[in-house]
Design a protein around this nucleic acid. Structure first.
Length: 468
RNA sequence: GUCCCCAUCGUCUAGCCCGGUCCAGGACGACGGCCUUUCACGCCGUUAACGGGGGUUCAAAUCCCCCUGGGGACGCCA
């Protein structure tokens, strides 16, 4: 049994969207789970649509997700000579032939076949004409006309197509360039790819490609086709249909491991487990676990997955991300004024409440802002900062000021002590204090929050609240 | 039109290959409750599905056929 080599072969015509990322993830997992290699090939033979930006975007997205590839990136366009060499071999061995039928002629064939209810295909006019090379001539595969071509799909099981359904596909265009199906086969073979895991839309290409493998007498790799991802409306996710670049999720403040986890579970399962570490994914992944029906991308569930990772994450790392996002928003200079160590202390209080980094940055404002800029919500002020409440705050202020340093325990002692002393309910005291220090917005618990804010800021905020 | 693929709660899915243990399990969501100074987190509970019809069988979500519905492909695109 030779070593598993799987590949991801995107065409660089745009960003890497969530569907492509999932295909890449599964191919990567397939290789990693078997200790094999994962190679990346850029299918840039469409000179018109391929761009350098798209190539960079794909590479960036893969690296953000941590889908590292082995070896050098292969650019398909660089293999044109090799492709043509194979085509020549095919002609020599009688598996391919020149054809001078015009595009118009072939289109007409297809159209009339369609009308008659037959499969639209090239009729093989030039199969036996033994034409040589010439202006405007293409090279076609001399495909078998009877029998059938089948394969065992890693995810769908056995699939078979009558050869009469397939036509003599073009291998080399009239401008001398090789076509996709030919190039893919040659590259996969040359790169030693043993298992091809790709999108569902390639199922129909597979038998055609197998025909080329057969004609060259090459070993046919195993194929697997993963179903596509649907939007909330059950329509195929496409760029105009909400298929976002994976980097958009980065911008929205989601964690890469959450994207990986969610994508892995979209169409793949391992019993009832929902959350997987990267190591577990590698350990448990098996194409058998892949589902064979399309799935809907559910943002709500994805957010839940993300929040799980947000909670578990190392505060130091989250703090760095918050700082990054802050810098993106207000600029490096402004962001540099914020004390990172302070943010590190704030983060744990927000981890159970923030759905994303963006969300966390939003929620951390209460902590970052100075008293003078703290916004007090009118409703909360009216409800909780009554004159009696202010009188309580006056008394509590004295106690806080007397404290050398606010800690979880000292805050608790002061608040609880005050409550028992006055025979009040905690709520009667807690809410006014909370409003005083947070302005009324939802916030973490007082015992945690006040120590992080610090004595000076706490005192100042209470003073300001009393003045309102 | 022809060919290929698909079909379990609103969503992601387990179960299907090797029929009984499934009056179908888990997760997200929604709803209710507990915890509680607010908001979350967490915990507990409720809700909700085998697309339809025929078979086969003592027994079918599981096997077979048909229908319906969805998707994909049919390029000198990839």
């Amino acid at each position: 049994m030779s070593k598993t080599v799987s590949r991801f072969a995107p065409s660089p015509t745009g960003f890497l969207h969530i569907g492509g990322a999932r295909t890449a993830l599964f191919a990567w997992l397939l290789a990693r789970s078997e200790g094999g290699e994962f190679v990346l090939r850029i299918e840039d033979t469409d000179r018109e649509r391929s761009t350098k930006e798209a190539i960079d975007a794909i590479i960036d997205a893969m690296s953000w997700l941590g889908l590292e590839h082995d070896g050098e990136i292969v650019f398909q366009s660089k293999n044109a000579d090799r492709h043509n060499q194979v085509i020549d071999q095919l002609i020599e061995s009688g598996h391919a032939y020149y054809c001078d039928c015009s595009k118009e002629k072939v289109d007409a064939m297809r159209e009339s076949a369609m009308k008659e209810g037959r499969k639209p295909k090239y009729d093989g006019t030039c199969r036996e004409r033994n034409l040589g090379p010439g202006e405007d001539r293409v090279v076609r595969l001399k495909a078998p006309q009877s029998g059938s071509t089948g394969f065992r799909d890693m995810v769908k099981g056995p699939i078979s197509v009558e050869n009469s359904e397939l036509d003599d596909m073009i291998l080399r265009r009239s401008d001398g360039t090789p076509t996709y199906n030919l190039a893919v086969v040659v590259d996969d073979h040359d790169m030693g790819v043993t298992r091809v895991l790709r999108g569902d839309d390639h199922v129909n290409n597979t038998p055609r490609q197998i025909l080329i493998y057969n004609a060259m007498n090459w070993d046919v790799p195993e194929f697997g086709h993963v179903p596509m991802i649907l939007g909330p409306d059950k329509k195929k996710l496409s760029k105009r249909h909400g298929a976002l670049s994976v980097m958009e999720y980065e911008k929205m403040g989601y964690l890469p491991e959450a994207v990986i986890n969610y994508l892995a579970r979209l169409g793949w399962s391992h019993g009832d487990q929902e959350l997987f570490t990267r190591e577990e994914l590698i350990k448990y992944f098996n194409p058998e676990g892949l589902g064979n029906s399309p799935s809907v991308f559910d943002l709500t569930k994805f957010e839940w997955v993300n929040s799980q990772y947000m909670q578990q994450a190392d505060p130091e790392r989250i703090a760095d991300l918050v700082m990054d996002f802050l810098a993106r928003e207000v600029g490096e200079e402004e962001a540099a004024k914020v004390d990172r160590e302070y943010v590190v202390k704030v983060v744990p209080l927000l981890q159970p409440r923030a759905k994303s980094i963006v969300d966390m940055l939003e929620q951390s404002r209460v902590f970052l802002v100075d008293v003078s800029h703290l916004h007090y919500e009118e409703k909360a002020v009216k409800k909780f900062l009554t004159s009696e409440a202010k009188a309580m705050l006056e008394e509590l202020l004295v106690r806080f000021e007397a404290e050398e340093k606010l800690t979880h325990d000292s805050v608790e002692a002061i608040l609880k002590g005050y409550v028992t002393e006055k025979g009040l309910k905690f709520k009667d005291v807690g809410q006014p204090v909370r409003t005083a220090v947070s302005g009324g917005a939802p916030s973490p618990g007082l015992y945690d929050m006040l120590p992080v804010l610090g004595k000076a800021q706490t005192v100042a905020r209470i003073k300001r609240a009393i003045e309102l």
